[in-house]
Simulated assay, not measured.
Amino acid sequence: MEENPANGDPEGDIDPGTLFEKLPEEWICPDCGESKDMFIEV
């Protein structure tokens, strides 16, 4: 799934427009439940 930074993550208190690199290290994906360090750049 490709996320759109323009949407943000309202449940995670992430503002729209926040780039993935700027997400807090403790952020958890609301769709899959994985932590930020489990993602790879494609």
Rank of each mutant, 00 (worst) to 15 (best):
W27P: 04
P30W: 09
P16Q: 02
I40R: 12
F39A: 05
N7L: 15
N7M: 10
K22T: 13
E3P: 12
P16F: 00
F20P: 01
L23R: 02
V42Q: 07
P30E: 07
N4F: 07
T18Q: 00
D37F: 09
D15K: 10
C32V: 06
P30D: 07
G17P: 03
P10S: 06
D31V: 11
P24Y: 00
E2L: 12
C32I: 05
A6S: 05
P10K: 11
P16T: 03
E25D: 04
P24Q: 05
P24C: 00
T18A: 02
E26H: 08
I14N: 00
E2S: 10
P24N: 04
G12K: 04
C32T: 07
F20W: 04
I28M: 09
L19G: 06
D15P: 10
D31Q: 15
G33I: 01
K36M: 05
E41F: 09
N7T: 10
E41H: 10
C32S: 07
F39E: 06
K22G: 12
I28F: 09
G33T: 02
E3R: 13
I28H: 05
D15M: 07
M38R: 11
E21L: 06
G17N: 03
T18H: 00
V42D: 11
F20N: 02
A6C: 12
G12H: 04
E34H: 12
P16K: 01
A6T: 10
E3D: 15
F20R: 02
L19F: 14
K36P: 05
E21T: 08
D15R: 08
L19A: 14
G12V: 07
K22M: 15
I40G: 06
M1R: 08
P5W: 03
V42K: 11
E25V: 06
F39N: 08
N7P: 14
A6M: 08
E2P: 07
P16Y: 01
K36F: 00
N7H: 12
G33H: 02
G17L: 01
G17Q: 01
E3C: 12
S35P: 13
I14V: 05
G17D: 02
T18K: 03
E2I: 12
M1E: 14
I40W: 08
P30G: 05
C29K: 03
N7Q: 14
W27V: 02
I14G: 01
K36C: 05
E26N: 13
I14D: 03
N7E: 13
F20G: 02
E25I: 07
M38S: 12
A6W: 11
M38W: 13
D15G: 06
K22R: 11
D9Q: 01
E25W: 02
K36A: 01
G33S: 00
I28G: 04
D31K: 13
P5A: 05
P10A: 07
W27F: 03
D13A: 13
E41W: 11
L19Y: 10
G8Q: 01
V42H: 13
I40D: 14
D31F: 14
E25L: 04
V42S: 09
D9P: 06
P5I: 03
L19Q: 05
N4K: 03
P24V: 03
E2N: 08
I40V: 14
N7G: 08
C29F: 06
N4Q: 15
E26Q: 11
L19T: 13
G8Y: 00
